[in-house]
Design a protein around this nucleic acid. Structure first.
Lengths: 218, 218, 218, 218
DNA sequence: GATGAATGAGGATTCATTCAT
DNA sequence: CATGAATGAATCCTCATTCAT
């Protein structure tokens, strides 16, 4: 009787639920193997269903990947934005935002890998979506950066080379630190964020303020 | 007879030359398509030879990729090390090293992409080589960083979390800025380097010296 | 309550009605796509029901196709026979029969295509039914032809090569003209019939009477 | 030694030869099963090679089918045209042309089936090619018909409804008689042609001359 | 040294068909 | 009566890799 119940837990689920399960499985497999080495069969098996379901719900391997990207991307951007919104001044906002970011990655390692580390691997239609999502993340950071130092019109500054430069560097660094974090399990996301802030906060302010470093004669 | 000669311009080249031609072609294709979407046929055609030659010289697609990685990796590490070696103090060394790095990428975009952006894409044997090469680059930077601020034993500090953290962040930022540079063709590698130094030099020194940033109460 | 009623307009129809609706939809789809390219989903959707109903009523795709073939075949044979029966002499019978045929096709283009143009496409069980139906049509024509010129026993002549030859040629021509008619929407079925009769009536009589054409020496 | 030779007969053949062998096999299989039921594996096996060869040479199942259609279509149109060209007057030309046609079909049954009987079965790109080839055949007949009775400008008459009607009917009848011929192996192509000419020659002339049959009052 | 010919193996995708509700 | 959920079984196609010349 009880096990009839547990059977029911896995069988004949409504579409929406199954879709999430499939995405969960897909993220795992895409993350472990990379897009091309990931085999749809394995995803299906891991999700506890048969291949045709995947195609029924997502249309194609690309479609499935896109769905993964999208879900994780939105999750991240939201948690980033929510965190930043809780603070008023630029410094706090960046701190909160980065902290949320590292926290997210710490808990969604697979998702992050899928989301961010496979740009060159996919081609065609999906590449565009990947670009879009990556851009979203970058834009969130950029807007934080811009607003942080803008005494004047924020939106105008978004296009500034200075801003995009800083944002890009920041995102790149954060991404790379994702691996560092994985190799140093003892460090909490907040500690990592603190390290990063220590390293860039002063310079960032200066850079955005126009104070430039000049090469030594050595 | 005469046309036999002109044929010879392309045919029957010594092994070493052919190998380089093939690697050149391979880097182009791997870079444009990514490892899995790259098709050996296309590489062979681009190199102006037939597929079996590729296998004769490199054994397998993986072997060919490894060769690409290795050649570009060595090129980069050397140019980085050479540049750094010309300076004495830490600041200058980093400046010279990064400058060499951005210069290299500016001229070897394809090579850099192949070298650094495909970690998740390849599996098995090659993955190890990729890791090794990426590590090499990281180590070069790390050693620079470490030596830069070490008043004491350099090699000891290499294992320090501080050092690896800074190195990682730096490499990540530099990598990401590679794209920024591609989108801002007006900026010379030196200008990019200067921007980056402005952003991180102060903070980096402080961070490595143990001065930590602390979160505001906001 | 009221809307339960309006729902009932489409729902819970008696079996016989539903079957006809499904066959209608099936004929459309089979005709547009051909047997293999026709997808059961599309048929079900067009019929406004769900796939399982199709299987409940017809057992299989083949079964559904057979039902289509059968319905249209009977429709045609009957209308052909009825028309022919209204005339007494051979000439009139053929005229009436052909006229009925072209009239039928003009109004049931889809049905005719399904019925007659997919012999090679289906395999196995269905092929037999298709053959049977096509034979039925041929036989009706043949019997007309035979009776038309038979001074003696009609049924005996049915097996004659002359009769089957003429019947076959006639059916083939008529089938092909089906397309011609579709491309010349101005022509009424009766006009088409008249053209055809002009072309074959004299020769047919002669041929059946044993008068043969002989090749010129040119 | 000798059997090394016979091995060589089947192995490592030059592209052009293999292509023809594959087309031969494909025609057989397409003819027996129909386009959709035909499986590329079976074709490859029958041709004595592996599937990838088929794709290397023809690109896709559709491409292979197109190649079949094209080869057989050209064969037929040429043999038809050549035959017709040997005669001067319309009657002889038609006789020779039809005779060549039935001769062709008698010897290339499979080819004919592939060429002409699968219009509805294939979709997309190929459908166009099939249409083109079928049109070619029809055009050849139509041009014969037109020239045969045209006292004035031939090309003008090709568009005439009368001509296209007669040509269509003729092609349709001939196609259908293809089956009749297969069921009456005793009859030579020339005998079949004679039967057909007996049936249509007089009426055709009349029809094209404008003499129309009128329905009896019965 | 060089290549045209050939293939083993595997992956994405589709579809007729059936449960369980 | 009616259907959303689910799948077994093919089929097309591609690609790294290897002979035989």
């Amino acid at each position: 009787m009880a096990d009839k119940m547990s059977d029911k837990t896995r069988r004949r689920l409504p579409r929406h639920v199954r879709e999430q399960q499939i995405i969960d499985a897909a993220i795992q497999v895409f993350s472990k193997r990379g897009y091309h080495l990931a085999v749809v069969d394995e995803i299906a098996e891991l999700a506890g269903i048969s291949k045709p379901m995947v195609y029924l719900y997502f249309g194609s391997k690309e479609g499935l990947f896109t769905a993964c990207i999208r879900r994780e991307g939105e999750l991240l951007t939201e948690s980033f934005a929510n965190a930043a919104r809780t603070a008023r001044d630029a410094e706090s906002q960046l701190w909160r935002g980065l902290s949320a970011f590292f926290g997210f990655v710490a808990e969604h390692r697979d998702g992050w890998v899928v989301l961010y580390r496979q740009a060159s691997e996919v081609g065609g239609e999906v590449a565009a979506e990947v670009q879009r999502q990556r851009g979203e993340v970058g834009a969130a950071v950029a807007s934080l950066v811009a607003s942080g130092i803008a005494r004047t019109d924020t939106s105008a500054r978004l296009a500034d080379p200075e801003v995009s430069f800083v944002a890009m560097a920041l995102v790149g660094a954060a991404d790379a630190l994702t691996d560092w974090m994985a190799e140093h399990p003892g460090e909490s996301p907040d500690q990592v964020t603190q390290r990063l802030m220590s390293m860039i906060w002063v310079g960032m302010r200066n850079a955005l303020a126009g104070e430039t470093w000049t090469p030594p004669r050595g």
